[in-house]
Design a protein around this nucleic acid. Structure first.
Lengths: 245, 245
DNA sequence: CCGTGTGAATTAATTCACAGCG
DNA sequence: CGCTGTGAATTAATTCACACGG
């Protein structure tokens, strides 16, 4: 057992709320964070909720409600201090300190994920790549040496890994997930198209290309159906006729 | 303008409901679909909601409520016919007919996505790869020739493309999205970390690695916080003590 | 004034609990 | 008798609308 992750971040954001923040809000914070980062980079000092909301693609009321769950960080009549809010959001999300991530499974997808340069800028640090295939072990990918999955425990403890990304075939995902949990990893991002069974207290998020496409297929289909219905609905003509009046 | 997507799928599932199905339900259908496929493959004929729910990682009440939005497809005292339900779900999602997809941006990620073999089995068909870089155009990737993005309109019309996957750098995503919309594509899966601005009637889903990791970071952090609180809460000892009693 | 923060109202999603069918 | 389908109850999320501070 090595030192657990550095306990309290430097910023003044701490236990405060962190609890009872709605999940739906949490899901949107990364978007706000990214938009803020781009504003700061462009030298914008302060931004009103309406503008920030527009950039994030949400309504301004919702944005204000979301932020109100973290505290009162705005100035009435002005808006939010970009720099300050950026720091607050980072703190709440837990990416203001060290946030070490490993990728397990260095196939096509693992390769691509490892090569995604934007991670560091967004507060998470890639600290290890693991695979079981001798064909990959020992290779260097994105500046990291691919290690044997047999070394999993060692890597997790050395680096105090917080999150593991699973980018491996569906049939191995459950077994690897169990090993991760046994090593103490409690957050898993699963790219394999299976539902992982994990004990309480472990958080899993699943990202599945095919599922997303199927959901989009539904919307596409529904749209065609309602378009058909619209042909019966001649109100559209009013818009055209008003031009002549 | 070429023939629009084949109008009505062969199955008896059609306009029926399709409307007023809650979004949260739609988001879960792909999971049910995959679990059912695996049951059918294993020769299971019929499955009760409790079992199906367990495999899908949801509560049985929710599963039944979800299915009830599509119709009454179960048999009381028995459960659901796997084969039949599979067909119904495919129909509702719109993957029982042709569902042609293109990938725009054949970098590391696009490569990996193109190579994902599971798509066909899940009802969507990869029909084209596009990129703007001469270094990639003309190469064969996953059995498809990479075409010039200048041919976008041609490809979309030839193949009657329903969905486009964006796997390109953030700075190009908005421009390409606009071109897609102009070509008539109304469903976009966006892997770039930007919020796309699209007209009403176009559906965009965003998949962002960094955002997902940040959300997991939040949960990891919150867990540590509550664990600390638990140190004050000595009830755990009861469990240990009971062994001796 | 302008824009935040927030109660109150609305709408969506989940869970409960049980009537009723095979 | 077991399991579906569903109203009713609960809980979560979103939107409204406006009081209040800078």
């Amino acid at each position: 057992m090595t030192a657990r992750r550095s306990f309290a971040p430097s910023t003044g954001v701490r236990a405060e709320a962190t609890k009872d923040i709605p999940q739906a809000t949490i899901d949107r914070l990364p978007v706000y964070l990214r938009v803020l980062a781009s504003l700061v980079e462009r030298g914008v000092a302060t931004v009103p909720s309406a503008h920030l909301a527009q950039l994030a693609g949400v309504g301004s009321a919702m944005l204000r409600k979301d932020l109100s769950h973290l505290g009162s960080y705005g100035t009435r009549g002005v808006g939010y201090d970009c720099d300050f809010l950026l720091g607050q959001l980072s703190g709440v999300l837990g990416v203001s300190g060290r946030c070490p991530v490993i990728i397990v499974g260095i196939g096509n997808l693992g390769h691509a994920l490892a090569g995604y340069a934007g991670l560091r800028a967004r507060g998470v640090e890639l600290v290890g790549l693991l695979d079981s295939s001798p064909a990959v072990i020992g290779q260097e990918v994105a500046g990291h040496l691919v290690r044997d999955i047999a070394d999993l425990t060692a890597v997790v403890e050395e680096q105090d890994v917080a999150i593991a990304v699973l980018a491996l075939p569906a049939e191995h995902a459950q077994a690897v997930a169990e090993r991760l949990v046994a090593c103490g990893v409690r957050s898993i991002l699963n790219f394999a198209p299976v539902v992982l069974r994990v004990p309480d207290g472990v958080t899993v998020r699943r990202l599945d290309l095919a599922s997303e496409l199927q959901i989009l297929a539904f919307h596409g289909q529904r749209r065609e159906a309602t378009e058909c219905a619209d042909l019966d609905d001649l109100d559209h003509l009013d818009d055209l006729l008003e031009v002549t009046s």
